[in-house]
Design a protein around this nucleic acid. Structure first.
Lengths: 183, 183
DNA sequence: ACCTGAACACCGTTCAAGT
DNA sequence: ACCTGAACACCGTTCAAGT
């Protein structure tokens, strides 16, 4: 069933977070389930399909936490908080989101959510796609750099919360400027 | 000599760009040079070291093109143009920049260059590191998404030039706002 | 000084077979 | 319907040996 696929992806993610994404092999995932490597193939037709399924799962997890209420500024903050919480909860698996092309269903849903927030903010329709890509590039990229060490040590104890909050406030002002420019 | 290391990294990059980063193996790179896989090890002590050397080479290439003259706005535009040119020249190898932690010499040099431009713009010293990380996240992440397809088809023929120019103009206005806020 | 070849412990995946 | 085991063509890397 699909139930079994869920269990396989569970173990693949756990393995990535414990030992890094390079430790994810069909053999190792099978072993965690007491199965031979070949037993996974009816559920995920290749290792590539397994990695894609991991990304879909992570984005799904993200979307259950990303929806806030309140004004568009707070909703944007809720999305960004969810992205960074996801990266910290899945430090090994998260980078797969950046390294795999994102024309998938869940990645579309994330883009749609951010676009909807921008429209709710009053961003003119022809500016929405561009600003969505800017915002998602910043959110996903910041969390990735935070998790894989591209930023180095940075602030005390690697506490990036206030830095990212300041970045997001800047982007919010930028969105307000785009709205004003066209209003 | 170091000369030989250069030739090895040359072929590894060519292989990544022709057949994708997953085609880069010690065996395949050796073959392109008419050498056994083991002949590479005196020059690069592991495959990881080879991948790091690729990143260093790419960033070095970037830095030879990234230095413009004129005002800080034009200098920032020159850096961003160089980043995107690099990604398009090395579509297979470029993503390694995003997936490997960047405490290396050349990545430090890129950060230093952007920080220097921000200081020249008059950004207050305590805001420089944060804005540098915001700008580099955007530049590197945008080029990555462009090259690995995370943005999908997008504008006609996948021509992202004007989209990124608009993003960069936005970030320039943001920098100006940060300067004004503190002046 | 520079390189090779055999060997080891891994991969993903195909195929035929087992219950 | 679900799973296994052997086999194939690959990996990175160690080690001993060759010139």
């Amino acid at each position: 069933m699909d139930e079994k696929q869920r269990l396989i992806v569970d173990q693949a993610i756990a393995l990535a977070d414990e030992s890094g994404v390079e430790a994810v092999s069909m053999r190792a995932v099978g072993q965690r389930l007491g199965l031979s490597p070949m037993a996974l193939y009816p559920y995920l037709r290749s290792k590539d399909a397994l990695l894609d399924a991991i990304v879909e799962r992570l984005l799904g997890e993200l979307l259950t936490m990303a929806d806030g209420d309140g004004g568009w500024q707070d909703r944007l903050r809720a999305v960004s908080k969810a992205v960074r919480a996801l990266a910290r909860r899945h430090p090994g698996a998260y980078p797969l989101i950046m390294s795999r092309p994102g024309a998938t269903a869940e990645s579309r849903r994330l883009d749609d959510l951010i676009e909807e927030i921008l429209r709710a903010a009053g961003v003119p329709a022809d500016e929405v796609p561009r600003l969505e890509r800017l915002i998602s590039t910043l959110m996903l990229g910041f969390a990735n750099s935070e998790v894989n060490g591209r930023f180095g040590a940075g602030p005390a104890g690697g506490d990036w919360d206030s830095e990212f909050a300041a970045d997001l406030d800047d982007e919010i002002r930028l969105i307000e400027a785009v709205i004003a420019r066209s209003g």
